[in-house]
Every structure is written in C-alpha cells, then in structure tokens.
C-alpha cells in the first residue's frame, strides 16, 4: 500500500504528505492515549494491576533502557548465554527458536503442500488427518515434544514447527489446486520438463498463496513460542514473563507484553514485505 502511495507522489514532500494523512497518524495516537487512560482508571479502581504510570516507573530503568543487560551490567554481549539477562536478549532467544522452527515448518510445509495439492488421491488421504491435527493447540504438543526430545530447547522448536506448518501446507496445497488450467495446458503442449514446469509455472503461480500461509504461520509460531517458554524453559520472553510473575513483578510482565506484541507485529510485516518483494509482478 505504502509503495503505491510513494509512486503516486514522485516528488515526495513529507510535510504535505503529513497534512494530507494527518488523520491516519493522529487517530491511532488518540486511541492509544484513551486506552492508557482506561487502563489507569482500571488499575486505580481494582488495585489488581499496576497502571501505566506505575509500569513506567518500575520498568524504565533498567529494563527499557538496558535491553541488552546481563546481571548489573547495562550492556554486555554475553547475554546469549541466558540467565539474568535483559529483555532484548530474552526476545532474541525466542526469535532464534522461532527462526529455526519456522524455517523447518516452511520447508516441510511447502513440500508437503505442493505434493498434497498436486495429487488428488494424496489430498483425500491426508486431509482428514491434517484437519484433526491442526486443531490441536500448541501447548498440548508440549508433553509429546518433551517425551521425544527430553530437552526443552528442541521441544520448543518442535512446538513452533507443528503449530506453524498447517496453514503453510493448506495454503500451498490450495495454491497448487487453484492453478489456472491455462498454465497447465501451456506446460502440456510445450511438454515442459518436470524441473522447468516446477520453477517456471508451478512455483510462481503458487507463491501468493504460499505467502498467505507463511504469514499465518509466523503469527501462530510467535503465539506458540511464548506459551511453550512459559511452561518450560530457561530463556526466552515467555520464560521472562513467568519468572517475573513468580517474583511478583507485574510491571515487568506488562512490559514484556509490549515487547511480544511489537515483535509479533514486526514479524508479520517482515513476511508481508518479503512477499510483496517476491511476487511484485503479480
């Protein structure tokens, strides 16, 4: 969306752009302020949660200004080891798990999706099973994952994998099934080789569908990692939340929620950005 707007204004003038789109910027800010006020009122009435002002006072120093802290040091590169480290390090530990699990889910999911989409028989064979499996909540996989891997690290990655893979499989399969007959006819009449067919026709026509799946997948992966880390783990943002809750630091919990939300939002935008980049010609 922003790219087309940018193209429409070749001589980009930030000031006029801001004037024209003022509402677009002001409205979210106002909404956010109202939410803060409601939150503040809620906490001063119920006394159950710290309000925004309290959170700011508790968490600004050192949690917000030292995201890459280790122990009492505000900045240290040793944070990847885990332990008493800042939120930045915790988030990156979660992100690494998501990256591994999600990459595996993408590779396996796209492969299975192409196969399932290409073969009617295979689709009919596995569809009921997949439909059941995909409704299993991520956390229900945790005991299974722990039983298989005996370790929380790979178990977390497995949960990411098994949560993110279903939308990737299904959307890729639908993309293959929805491929216009015309493209298949071109391939048939030219007698394209398997490789040529895959790379010149199948893959490009499936890419938009695939990215829908990848985008849903990254959202689910991020949901799952936080939950998995809360139950079992020694690093990661989920672990941080649980740890903070157990030591009664509710302000830290709330700050971590902001982190999670913002990172999840950015991940979604990242996959969206990559998809516009790859299928720009569609």
């Amino acid at each position: 969306m922003t790219t087309t707007a940018g193209r429409r204004f070749p001589a980009f003038n930030f000031e006029t752009y801001l004037q024209k789109n003022a509402r677009q910027f002001v409205a979210p800010v106002v909404a956010f302020l109202i939410a803060l006020i409601i939150w503040q009122l809620f906490s001063s009435v119920t006394k159950s949660l710290p309000g925004p002002i309290q959170v700011y006072q508790d968490a600004w120093d050192p949690l917000v200004i030292c995201p890459l802290s280790v122990g009492n040091e505000c900045f240290s590169l040793d944070g990847w080891r885990g332990g008493d480290v800042g939120l930045g390090w915790q988030t990156s530990a979660s992100l690494i798990r998501v990256a591994i699990g999600y990459s595996l889910a993408s590779i396996v999911g796209i492969t299975i999706g192409v196969l399932v989409g290409a073969s009617r028989l295979l689709y009919q064979a596995v569809d009921p099973m997949f439909q059941v499996l995909r409704t299993v909540p991520p956390l229900a996989w945790l005991p299974i994952a722990l039983a298989i891997f005996k370790d929380s690290g790979p178990a977390g990655i497995f949960i990411i994998f098994v949560t993110a893979i279903w939308p990737i499989i299904y959307n890729t399969a639908v993309g293959v099934q929805q491929m216009p007959q015309d493209y298949k006819n071109v391939a048939k009449v030219l007698r394209l080789s398997g490789k040529e067919y895959f790379f010149s026709i199948l893959l490009p026509s499936v890419v938009p569908y695939m990215f829908t799946g990848l985008r849903l997948g990254i959202g689910l992966a991020w949901l799952a990692i936080v939950a998995a880390e809360m139950l079992r783990g020694d690093t990661g943002i989920g672990f941080f939340i649980w740890n903070a809750y157990n030591s009664g630091a509710l302000s830290e919990v709330i700050l971590a929620l902001f982190y999670i939300g913002i990172v999840g939002f950015l991940l979604d935008k990242l996959v969206g950005f990559v998809s516009t980049f790859i299928s720009a010609d569609k």
């Binding site: 015309d182 006819n185 009449v189 026709i201 490009p204």
Partner: peptide, 20 residues
C-alpha cells in the same frame, strides 16, 4: 495421443504467464 509442440495452440484467453 497427447498434446505436443507440433500442434501448437493459441488459447482463447492467451494463456501467457503473468510473471514472465
């Protein structure tokens, strides 16, 4: 017995690949 390039077709809706 099957389609082949010796009997090439010009399709009604062109059948060009939009990404090429």
């Amino acid at each position: 017995t099957r389609p082949g390039p010796d009997r090439m077709v010009v399709f009604q809706n062109y059948a060009l690949l939009p990404w090429k």
